[in-house]
């Protein structure tokens, strides 16, 4: 579905993405993990077309995304941090989004209902708390029932209940042939839904493997322990 082919990106002298090649398919929930500054956010932004790579190519369903905007119809994006125009209300935001994508009739209002967005519809976006903003972002990401979900640190500001709701929703989506891409540095949050793990460090993919395979390789069950093990093994190889 998404194929990343020898991707390079540097900001000045700083190499952020260094020869990244990855291939994501539907029915996968990929945990994109790595320390801060490892390039996960940049990779996500590159997939979304927000950052333009110097070299390499990304294809979406076999078509290069360079200079394209149409493919983003199939992507729901929940950014790490959300800030909205101060003086608009939640319901105005949703109606604007709908009006921007008038031709798309597919809707997924599960999260919208679960987070009870309607109830805060008349609130100005400025006065929303961080958690509420995240809920709005999550509901927006799912709104057009996209085939791909890209979530950047989704659980950072969410309360445990909301977190649980989101996780359940992701699980359901996975069952409906979706591709889920989650970047996070808090590892154990993602254990339950992750099918694949990609570990980035200093702009390079340290590994990209199915979770099950990793589990058997490392004989660990918890994600952060698995990663610790793998890194240790890799270091001893070097």
């Amino acid at each position: 579905m998404i194929k990343i082919d020898h991707l390079y990106k540097n900001f000045g002298r700083h190499q952020v993405l260094n020869d990244i090649s990855l291939h994501f398919e539907k029915n996968q929930a990929i945990a994109l993990i790595g320390p801060n500054g490892s390039g996960k956010s940049t990779l996500i932004k590159t997939i979304l077309g927000l950052v333009l790579p110097q070299q390499g190519e990304i294809t979406f369903d076999g078509i290069s995304i360079a200079g394209q905007s149409h493919y983003r119809k199939e992507i729901g994006y929940m950014p790490q941090m959300s800030r909205f125009p101060a003086n608009m209300t939640v319901s105005q935001l949703f109606s604007m989004m709908k009006s921007l994508r008038k031709n798309e009739t597919r809707r997924d209002l599960d999260l919208y209902r679960a987070f009870d967005i309607d109830q805060m519809g008349s609130k100005r976006l400025e006065i929303l708390s961080g958690g509420m903003k995240q809920k709005v972002s999550a509901a927006l990401a799912f709104l057009f029932d996209p085939k791909v979900l890209v979530l950047d640190e989704p659980t950072a500001g969410l309360d445990p209940i909301a977190n649980e709701i989101l996780k359940n929703k992701l699980q359901q989506s996975l069952a409906k042939e979706r591709l889920i891409l989650i970047s996070s540095h808090i590892l154990n949050d993602l254990d339950d839904i992750t099918t694949h793990v990609s570990y980035l460090m200093e702009g390079e993919v340290k590994f990209f493997k199915p979770l099950e395979q990793l589990k058997t390789e490392t004989a660990e069950s918890r994600l952060n322990r698995i990663i610790a093990q793998v890194l240790k093994q890799q270091n001893s190889h070097d």
Partner: peptide
């Protein structure tokens, strides 16, 4: 600058820059 994050959200939609 205040709208930056919102612009990014918009940019993730199928819209031209």
């Amino acid at each position: 600058y205040n709208m930056y994050e919102f612009l990014i959200l918009l940019m993730a939609q199928p819209l031209r820059r």
